[in-house]
Nucleic acid binder design. Structure first.
Lengths: 345, 345
DNA sequence: TGTTAGCACTCATCAGCTTCGAGTGCTAAT
DNA sequence: ATTAGCACTCGAAGCTGATGAGTGCTAACA
């Protein structure tokens, strides 16, 4: 059987209606929706066909129809196809003054959740190869040193360590020079025994400080590549959609959103999306996360230059407003990139 | 009417039972619970009295009784009274290696939620008066400076700024000396026009760099005192308690836990608790947060020395295991303090 | 041949009803 | 003062029938 013009019109009408109401939609409703172009009986026949073809399903006999995963998939593909070239509409999303990337991401997730009324998820950037850019030792107390480690991509980490061996100002300056001249531009793999022993030799009586610093630096880099940061926001938005908010499902979904380690499958994809936009849509069972099989998930990969990449995602009911979500995500990508570029200037 | 020995025994039995089951408890149950010391009829008379005195309520006629807020209050006061001197039992709570305070707090919240099966809340420390301890400028790129600001209490903030005016190494060194000699030990209020103009004068041709740095420092300090960090964990634990997990209540509670600004009333109290332990128990309506009127909230204030204070809290059903929660929180305080002291050494 | 009107049928939902059992309050006996 | 007994209450659970939205099928129509 072929998906002819009329079937497509009816299918779209069903999906649109279901998106609005969340209720199964019947043949009479559709008949009215298309200005009685066809009677409910005709619609019924077509619906019967559409069901046979797998685009819609009946939750139970003599209820209206709701779109199946395949139906949504068709709809989404249509949208992506039709609207992709269209200029993204102006959004009122505003990213204000930036302090730390982390706080931006958190705020962004909140904005996104508010704007869409779905749950939002955002992963902190992962850095491909962590090259050391800069190390700075400073004394903050008599016996405490502050180690500031700057990695490629201007990722900054601080550590305070206690030292037994107290350096005077000149020694500290020399130590800084020593560290930077030896370590700058190296990845953690490149800091081998050879480098270390050379540094220790140069450090002379303060070799143990070198040890201490290296240990902390290694720690910092490891910690950074290990735990992927994921922030979520608006998780409770799911209560706005009856089909998700029965206790069993809501509980499961919220628990998943709370335990970010369960979400890493969503942000792990280096995939650029089927159409090169970096945007991916998972409908129902397509989702890699078990608890989201009754939802749709839209993810987008952002890239802030220098190989710093992360993911933004929206989790909502299958009847989510794909058009809006896709539009919002696209706009956001652009905004995030420009804002960040301006910041970096 | 007096709360005699028998009434107390019965009241405790009711509360204990209700804590276990979450169901209203009837006279026969209590009669069995006290090894038939009294018959169900006697218990009924006593329960009638207890109800009249306000310690228990009937959710509806011919249901068993459940403790009222006043009943719980009595119970908690008893526990605090009886067990306060007792040495806190050994806890398996372990705080491992510390990197940043923030991550410790997050992990702590998670631990706490797991351990208790209630929702946990933890507020980052607020610093009473933010004195500048140390400022360090470093060049990270040709035209970018890293400003590391260390506040009293070793709170470290990083900012990267773009500079038009490029300093060479010597100038940078001098700028660092200039900044530190003028600003160290000052609170933000103390950085007045006088100080600023003096610094600009000393900076000579690089006065605009001073402006830039001061602006960022002011920003850092303001941001820090403004937004109180609150982390929550285990919010979905509330689904484990039927009396909290109907859709209406669960949704409201989870939304409140998600919007941390609504929680600040819980952590705002400089109060040390009625008995000087820094622990406070809010039962039902006593809670300052509207959405928690069906819960109990236990908060504890921690102090990491140098006026750095924050709050840890547990949110659970009114029938929470107060004894365990109080014990856990007390132990945690001690652990947090010692771990942190060791870290600071 | 495609479209439509009509009709019998299905099934979720809801209100009203009954039954069941846990639990109470009261009274009279111990 | 305590207890046994009994009538009573009320929520929960199950059943019933009415309602109505929606379907599939058939026969008539253009």
């Amino acid at each position: 059987m072929e998906l002819d013009e009329r079937k497509i019109t009816i299918l779209k009408a069903i999906i649109k209606n279901y998106m609005d109401t969340g209720e199964p939609v019947g043949s009479r409703t559709i008949s009215k929706y298309v200005d009685n172009r066809w009677s409910s009986a005709t619609i019924r026949n077509e619906m019967s066909d559409l069901e046979e073809m797998g685009y819609i399903v009946q939750p139970h006999t003599s209820a209206g129809r709701i779109p199946s995963d395949k139906g949504y998939r068709f709809y989404v593909d249509q949208i992506v196809l039709e609207k992709d070239s269209e200029a993204a509409g102006v959004q009122e999303l505003m990213i204000k003054r930036i302090d730390r990337l982390e706080s931006v991401l958190k705020r962004l997730a909140k904005l996104l959740a508010n704007d869409t009324n779905y749950a939002a998820l955002i992963s902190g950037p992962r850095y491909q190869q962590n090259k050391l850019k800069f190390i700075q030792l400073s004394r903050v107390d008599e016996d405490k040193l502050l180690i500031v480690t700057v990695l490629e991509g201007n990722l900054i980490k601080n550590t305070i360590v206690h030292v037994r061996d107290i350096l005077n100002d000149d020694e500290l300056l020399n130590m800084n020079i020593l560290l930077n001249s030896n370590l700058n531009g190296l990845t953690i793999e490149e800091i081998n025994l050879d480098v270390i022993s050379r540094m220790k030799q140069q450090a002379g009586s303060h070799a143990d400080v070198v040890d201490l610093v290296l240990e902390q630096v290694a720690e910092v880099i490891r910690a950074d590549s290990e735990d992927l940061q994921i922030y979520t926001s608006g998780a409770t938005n799911i209560f706005k959609y009856p089909e998700l908010s029965d206790n069993q499902k809501a509980s499961e979904l919220l628990q998943t959103l709370e335990h970010t380690e369960l979400l890493k499958d969503l942000v792990d994809t280096g995939d650029d999306g089927e159409n090169g936009t970096g945007i991916q849509v998972y409908i129902g069972e397509e989702s890699p996360v078990q608890a989201m099989r009754d939802c749709s998930v839209v993810t987008a990969n952002y890239e802030l230059g220098e190989g710093i990449r992360g993911t933004i995602g929206i989790i909502g009911p299958k009847r989510m407003d794909y058009e809006k979500v896709l539009r919002t995500l696209r706009t956001l990508m652009v905004q995030l990139e420009t804002t960040f570029k301006k910041e970096e200037r």
